[in-house]
Design a protein around this nucleic acid. Structure first.
Length: 117
DNA sequence: TACTTGACATATA
DNA sequence: ATATATGCCAAGT
């Protein structure tokens, strides 16, 4: 069975280094699903906020902010705390200096890692 | 099958 | 800096 989109999205997310962040759109792109940013949000939404096995908190939107929403039942604020713990400065509205903390992986390396499993 | 909903992104005003 | 408008993709109803 070929890996599902969800699996690849989680695999890419798992590669994000501590103390750095990336965007939904970028994760989709690296996973091989350019344009499917919303799907990334959908996948991360069903992760257990308490489970840090996969660093879901290192994914933010393209404006450089945590996507705050009442539907998240507070996981958005948990995300802020987790990022602060890693040294990523997030202000009270959830904004952060994206360009300074953005994960810049070598695309080829990412493909290698995805293939290797 | 058709319509609605979202942890999105980009372009405009 | 905000707000509105489209385009996107998959799941839920």
């Amino acid at each position: 069975m070929p890996p599902t989109a969800q699996q690849r999205i989680l695999q890419v997310t798992a590669m994000i280094p501590r103390g750095t962040v990336t965007t939904y759109g970028r994760v989709a792109e690296l996973a091989g699903y350019f344009g499917a940013a919303r799907q990334v949000g959908w996948v991360l939404r069903r992760q257990d906020p308490a489970d840090t096995t996969i660093p879901w908190h290192r994914v933010v939107n393209a404006t450089g902010a945590i996507s705050m929403s009442t539907g998240r039942n507070g996981s958005d604020w948990i995300q802020r705390e987790l990022l602060l713990e890693e040294g990523v400065p997030v202000d009270r509205s959830g904004r952060l200096p994206l360009r300074a903390y953005l994960w810049m992986p070598d695309p080829l390396q990412v493909l290698q890692d995805l293939a290797g499993d």
